[in-house]
């Protein structure tokens, strides 16, 4: 899907800052989501992903900054705009006392563009029947029901907050397939947060990474993977101390090897590595998950040696 478009963005977040009391949870976040994009919103727990989503949906107020959806101020989103947004909050909440059918009827009453076929298709995908009590569903089934309720109004913008949380691989795969079902129309936009990087890698066009309350990355999945490089340097003897240079994310030392992960790789970095005089330098391809973990994980050197100190 193309991300280059002249259309106004579906979601615009402008210098968003959010405090809870005196604790700053999001700092000066600016982000644009173009129409037709599948956007993965990544970050460790507590980095402000859910708060960001709630804020641009107008469910919470920004402390500073603003957000717009479909060009409308988030704080005053009218019902007509909300009808164009499918929102699946984390937790997959359903009213337990309703049957699956009643859940659909309740939801359908709010959406003029409700598509019963989509609803039933997703239910079938998750092996749900109309008479099942929502409170008796398994976690995966509940997620399926929630997804059906979210997809059936055929939203132009689908916002999913950690939709695969707690699901087994089969349910996750079903969820992804259903999610992609909605994007069969080119102008549909999906914005979703997730900790499951393999899912993100499978479906997302772009990702944004929140780390330490600040947006650290906003790019295509390919770009993200390209910018984070992993090298294994082999030595005859014990490797020398890890050099300190800009862009170094982490290093891992063993008795003959030094593994380095760097970001925003440049030819100057290669010179720095060669200056260590290794026997060989082997570049290793990283998955998105590996890249992400290196990117948002603990910085610095890791080793198998006692207390992380050089054995020499």
């Amino acid at each position: 899907m193309s991300t280059a478009t002249t259309e106004p963005p579906v979601i615009e977040i402008d210098h968003l800052t959010k405090y809870y009391g005196r604790r700053e949870v999001i700092s000066d976040l600016s982000l644009q989501v173009a129409r037709g994009t599948i956007y993965g919103f990544l970050g460790r727990n507590g980095m402000g992903k859910t708060t960001t989503i709630r804020t641009f949906l107008g469910l919470e107020d920004a402390t500073r900054g603003s957000a717009r959806v479909f060009g409308l101020d988030s704080r005053t989103l009218p019902p007509e705009a909300r009808a164009r947004i499918g929102y699946l909050p984390e937790g997959h909440h359903v009213y337990g006392w309703m049957t699956v059918k009643e859940c659909g009827q309740f939801q359908a009453s709010y959406y003029p563009a409700w598509n019963q076929d989509i609803f039933e298709t997703v239910l079938t995908h998750f092996r749900l029947t109309a008479k099942m009590k929502a409170g008796h569903l398994s976690r995966g089934q509940r997620a399926g029901l929630c997804l059906a309720l979210t997809l059936a109004p055929e939203p132009e913008l689908l916002v999913l907050d950690d939709p695969a949380l707690g699901l087994d691989p089969v349910a996750r795969r079903s969820l992804l397939q259903s999610m992609l079902y909605v994007t069969r129309k080119a102008d549909r936009t999906i914005f979703f947060s997730s900790h499951l990087l393999s899912d993100v890698e499978r479906v997302a066009d772009r990702i944004a990474v929140l780390d330490g309350k600040v947006l650290r990355a906003d790019c295509t999945v390919e770009k993200f993977r390209q910018q984070i490089r992993h090298f294994v340097l082999k030595f005859r003897d014990q490797p020398p101390p890890t050099p300190n240079f800009p862009g170094l994310l982490e290093s891992f030392r063993t008795d003959r090897e030094l593994a380095l992960t760097v970001v925003n790789y440049t030819p100057q970095m290669e010179n720095r590595l060669e200056a260590l005089q290794p026997m060989s330098i082997e570049p290793v391809d990283l998955t998105l998950e590996d890249a992400f973990i290196s990117y948002v994980g603990e910085r610095g050197e890791k080793t198998f040696f006692t207390n992380g100190k050089d054995a020499r």
């Binding site: 000066d28 644009q32 650290r216 790019c219 984070i228 994310l249």
Partner: peptide
Amino acid sequence: GWPTPTRHGLEIFDDNALSPATE
């Protein structure tokens, strides 16, 4: 005003990104 968040040089933004840094 409020200072923009400190950048540590590890950010990854492409041409379509809208961040204080790219701005």
